[in-house]
């Protein structure tokens, strides 16, 4: 085989690969849909003046609205999807269900979109990573966090102590120690089989690490925008399956915007630019926090859609 034909063949194969990748790219739609759903979210936050909150009714089992009993344990599965601590709104359960719907139906729709597109174009993108990332994130937000917050922490931090700065920093330290201890117990091997006591120690370490990181997570992300972080993980997974640098940049920018929405009050930025948010209306505050993440997705999705359309017209 001549060198020229080898170089030519490598060039042709690179073109086939690039074309197949371009043909299977479909991330513009999930970006646009999630962007619009995030931008529309403030409409769901009804102020108490418009929608008086229902009188809290405790069921015969002693359960508050949104709580369920699983194997005798009381948990509030949609806690991390709710409006967050200290936000006065008329329909907290409506907000929880909205975000739950955005995440679950949005991710199911993304997988369905890729399958539909595969039938139409003839080249299918693997979606397993998105399903896995979404499922693990959902399990964490719906199961692990509410279970630990509702059950185990009551024993560790009775009363309001749980919400203190001291509890937060103790949890950070406990997490670092537990994670390091578990790693040492599992990975440092002395040649023979791992002794049972080290496996038991590692198991306790995992539980303690999970409990302490949950306290840190709730303290940092319990202000009502945690679902954005779940969407970040899912969009990073979309960028990975698409093998697209542009999609990865958009997912990274969205992650940064989602962290900002969770950790910083964006009303301050609006205030500096002369926009005053009405403190009595939760929609304004929520809109201020969600505008940037939504804008990143809508602009990114728009550019991707435009470039996909341009490429298909050229061919």
């Amino acid at each position: 085989m001549s060198t020229d034909s080898a170089a030519g063949l490598l060039h042709d194969l690179a073109e086939y690969r690039a074309r197949a990748r371009r043909d299977r790219h479909g991330y513009w739609l999930p970006l646009l849909v999630f962007g619009v759903l995030i931008l529309a979210a403030p409409l769901v936050y009804l102020p108490p003046s418009e929608w008086p909150p229902p009188r809290v009714q405790v069921s015969a089992d002693g359960l508050f609205p949104g709580q369920i009993k699983v194997f005798g344990l009381t948990i509030e599965p949609l806690y991390m999807f709710g409006p967050g601590n200290g936000r006065e709104i008329g329909n907290p359960m409506g907000v929880s269900w909205y975000w739950f719907g955005v995440v679950v139906l949005g991710l199911a729709g993304t997988v369905g979109w890729y399958r539909w597109r595969a039938r139409r174009v003839g080249v299918e993108t693997p979606t397993r990573l998105v399903v896995l990332a979404g499922s693990v994130g959902l399990l964490f937000l719906l199961g692990v966090v509410p279970l630990i917050l509702g059950q185990a922490l009551v024993l560790l931090f009775p009363g309001s102590y749980f919400y203190s700065n001291t509890a937060f920093w103790i949890s950070v330290e406990v997490f670092v120690l537990a994670a390091a201890g578990t790693t040492v117990a599992l990975w440092v091997r002395g040649g023979g089989p791992r002794p049972a006591w080290r496996v038991a120690l590692a198991s306790v370490g995992v539980v303690v690490a999970l409990m302490s990181i949950t306290i840190v997570f709730e303290a940092a992300f319990g202000h009502g925008h945690a679902p954005l972080l779940l969407l970040s993980v899912a969009l990073l997974a979309v960028a990975a399956i698409e093998r697209s640098a542009f999609c990865a940049v958009i997912a990274a920018l969205f992650t940064a915007a989602a962290l900002l929405a969770n950790l910083y009050n964006m009303e301050n930025v609006f205030y500096r630019f002369g926009f005053h948010v009405d403190y009595l209306n939760p929609r304004g505050e929520v809109f201020a926090n969600l505008l940037l993440p939504a804008a990143v997705l809508i602009v990114g999705g728009g550019i991707a859609a435009w470039s996909a359309r341009k490429a298909s017209r050229r061919e």
């Binding site: 086939y16 197949a20 299977r24 595969a118 174009v121 080249v123 299918e124 993108t125 693997p126 979606t127």
Partner: peptide, 25 residues
């Protein structure tokens, strides 16, 4: 073989690829 390499290259880029797509490309 040029075409077999191309088939493998395109198939390796995706989860699966349809006969018509390969034929056209």
């Amino acid at each position: 073989q040029k075409h077999r390499l191309a088939i493998l290259t395109i198939a390796a880029e995706a989860k699966r690829v349809e006969f018509g797509y390969l034929q056209q490309n």
